[in-house]
């Protein structure tokens, strides 16, 4: 009995240490989120969203590329089914990250933890979680979520409100923040993997071609992204199958 109590208090102090570590590591993520979500808010505004709707989108979805893709669907007033498909494709990488995390969690991790943690699988929280040795402590990720997630949602609504108060030059500059973030996600793995490096160039070229070619260029940007992603990834998987368990994130 005494031993069990001791074990329990040890676990509690381990969890709170993980929580504080997570909060510390969450600070740079929070700063990045503020800048990027602000430009996302500007896009939300141009898609016709209010500050509250922008806040809601970011608080519920927690996805840069996914929200961006979703806002383009809203701006085009496209069918709801297109939203489902576009979000499935834009956020497919979270599926992969979730698969990777499932292999790194202690099998004893209870369902409520999995349900809560899953909602916050972003490039950044995933990167932080994977960078820790051993089994993932949900409390570590909770710490970084507590610090960074509110900045993401707040930044988006500030972007919606202040987007039109800012000079056009500043808006134009902030508009590329999101693309800068995409580059920061795809380029480092390309340095270590020539297939990915070649793929990125092929993607740039085919995306450019698709925006010019008749018929394809008439499709919405989201649908073009969907088609190109499935086609290029499938061809790459056939030509360059990946060796066992070499997931994104493990090699960064």
């Amino acid at each position: 009995m005494k031993f069990k109590l001791l074990q329990k208090s040890q676990a509690v102090s381990e969890n709170s240490r993980a929580l504080f570590d997570g909060m510390r590591d969450g600070i740079p993520v929070a700063l990045g989120y503020l800048a990027v979500s602000f430009s996302l808010g500007i896009m939300a505004r141009s898609a016709g969203l209010t500050a509250f709707q922008g806040f809601l989108a970011s608080a519920l979805v927690n996805a840069s590329a996914g929200e961006y893709a979703g806002f383009t669907v809203i701006a085009e007033d496209a069918p709801y089914l297109e939203m489902v498909v576009v979000i499935l494709i834009a956020n497919a990488r979270y599926f992969l990250m979730s698969c990777a995390l499932s292999q790194r969690m202690s099998p004893e991790t209870r369902l409520p933890h999995r349900l809560l943690l899953g909602n916050y699988i972003t490039d950044e929280f995933f990167g932080l979680a994977i960078s820790r040795p051993g089994c993932i402590s949900p409390y570590y990720t909770y710490g970084s979520i507590l610090v960074a997630a509110p900045c993401w949602a707040l930044g988006t609504s500030i972007g919606v409100i202040a987007g039109n108060l800012l000079p056009l030059r500043v808006v134009s500059a902030l508009n590329v923040a999101l693309y800068g973030m995409f580059l920061a996600v795809i380029v480092p793995p390309a340095r270590k993997n020539r297939v990915i490096a070649g793929l990125i160039l092929i993607c740039f070229a085919s995306s450019y071609a698709a925006s010019l070619l008749p018929l394809i260029s008439n499709l919405s940007a989201g649908t073009r992204t969907t088609i190109l992603t499935v086609a290029i990834s499938a061809i790459a998987a056939l030509l360059f199958p990946v060796e066992q368990r070499k997931e994104a994130g493990n090699d960064t």
């Binding site: 494709i89 497919a92 795809i186 793929l199 995306s207 992603t229 199958p241």
Partner: peptide
């Protein structure tokens, strides 16, 4: 399944690259 594994491995890079270019040329003045 090796194909699904490989497909999922490439998806994140492909989708972000496709979204970045040429879109980045159109959002600035």
């Amino acid at each position: 399944n090796r194909f699904i594994q490989s497909f999922l491995y490439y998806v994140p890079y492909v989708t972000l690259a496709v979204m970045t270019f040429p879109a980045i040329l159109g959002v600035t003045q």
